[in-house]
Design a protein around this nucleic acid. Structure first.
Length: 120
DNA sequence: CCAATGACTCCAG
DNA sequence: CCTGGAGCCATTG
């Protein structure tokens, strides 16, 4: 197994790790890609975390990954376009008690949940 | 195998 | 203060 043999064999481990952290996010809280990436070691870059959620998108019904609780560092719902509906992400957040205004999480800094800090 | 894209982040002007 | 460009790493074509 070198390059084109087992791409998702070990890679899936990374996704599963992201899924676990995202799943551990308490209701009414939000996290960021950078925080998750940093918790995993900040070696993969924040972008990979987003890709992990894309890979987790079909897993939303299987793994129950609350990707709506994951936003970018600005608290902006960058990935809402990847949801079933462009408002699904905001609706889900508001259902959790998180207010979203102009595609941005209100009091995001206060609702920010850092796995490396909370889980330590 | 090489090139392009992307749910991001940081640095510089 | 706000806008733009480069960096990073994995997935996809």
């Amino acid at each position: 197994m070198k390059s084109s043999d087992a791409p998702s064999n070990e890679g899936r481990n990374f996704f599963q790790d992201v899924h676990e952290v995202v799943r551990l996010i308490p209701p009414g809280r939000v996290s960021t890609y950078g925080a998750i990436a940093h918790y995993l070691g900040a070696r993969h870059g924040a972008r990979m975390v987003g890709y992990a959620l894309i890979a987790a998108a079909p897993a939303l019904g299987l793994e129950k990954v609350p990707a709506q609780r994951v936003v970018n560092r600005n608290g902006l719902l960058t990935g809402r376009h990847h949801f079933s509906t462009p408002t699904a992400m905001q609706e889900a957040l508001e259902a959790e008690g998180v207010r979203v205004e102009n595609d941005q999480v209100v009091e995001f800094k206060r609702l920010f949940w850092d796995p490396a800090q909370e889980l330590e």
